[in-house]
Computed example of a mutant assay.
Amino acid sequence: MNCLIVDDQAVFRAVLKKLITLDPSLFLVGECTNAAEAHQIILNNDIDIIFLDIEMPRMSGIELARLLEGKNPMIIFTTSQIDYAIEAFDLNVVDFLTKPIGSVRFLKAVQKARNLIKTKKQAANEADEFVFIRDSNIIKRIKLSDILYFEAKGDYIKIFLSNTNYSIHSSLKSVEQKLPENTFFKVHRSFIVNLGKIDSIEGGTLIVNHTMIPVSDTYRPLLNKRMQIL
């Protein structure tokens, strides 16, 4: 996880850098002495966690947190004043660490952030697990894991599931661009298969749900590599 330290006092930045080394999953992208500098780094880099001091000149940590509301970084406030706790948690931050910060308390805060990041990623992945197709005048949602393979038939694409199939007006190239590369693979100019549904491969043919599907010589080496054949 990429992290950023934002604190105007060198001694506390040094403490946080030492604490960060306790968790090998943390990578320190940089350290800032003020919120304005931090804001620019956050806009131009992929930051997962910000260790953000509250009491800083010109722009406080709370003001920066308000600027970042709705953005990706997880904020862990660091401060010597417990009085800020209520205002801080109104901003839906991950945690609130009071200085001096102990190693156990620090690691617990990082774990909270890690769990939240994992939850967000899972939610994002779940959002990608479906495709929508137009079946006559009805828009239907199909779970990607239910799809066996796609077959091009002229100006139409047939979508095969274990218990049914659909026909949509599209090109195989257009369909391929909308599918996750780690799950689906084009094995022939007319076929895209779900890699997780392949039962066996023999020569220039693979079997998906008892159906024989041709594999072009062009795609066979790449298919073998993707399948991680032992």
Rank of each mutant, 00 (worst) to 15 (best):
L230H: 08
Q9Y: 15
I54M: 01
A124L: 15
K121D: 13
D48V: 00
G196I: 03
I157L: 01
E37T: 14
F150S: 06
E87K: 02
V193M: 06
D8L: 05
K121E: 15
S136Q: 14
G70V: 12
I76K: 02
I75L: 13
A123I: 15
I229Q: 08
K186S: 04
D155E: 11
H210F: 04
L148C: 11
I159P: 07
K143S: 08
K178Y: 02
L64G: 10
D217T: 09
K18Q: 13
A38V: 06
L28E: 02
M56N: 14
S200F: 09
R13V: 05
I213F: 02
L68E: 04
G61R: 11
L161M: 14
K121M: 13
D48L: 00
G70L: 10
Y84V: 00
V110Y: 07
I86D: 03
Q81C: 09
L161K: 13
K18N: 14
A35K: 04
T211H: 11
K71N: 01
H169G: 05
R66E: 13
T119P: 00
I192K: 06
L26H: 14
F51Y: 07
V93E: 05
G154H: 12
V208P: 01
S216N: 08
I133H: 11
I20A: 10
H188E: 02
D155H: 04
R134N: 11
K121P: 00
N137C: 01
G30P: 05
Y149V: 09
I117F: 07
N92P: 03
F51P: 03
H39I: 08
I138E: 11
D217I: 07
F77C: 08
K112D: 00
T33N: 13
I5G: 00
V93Q: 02
D46I: 08
I198C: 06
L223H: 00
E176V: 04
N2R: 14
H210N: 08
F27M: 10
R58G: 01
L206Q: 01
T205R: 04
H39G: 09
K225S: 08
G204M: 12
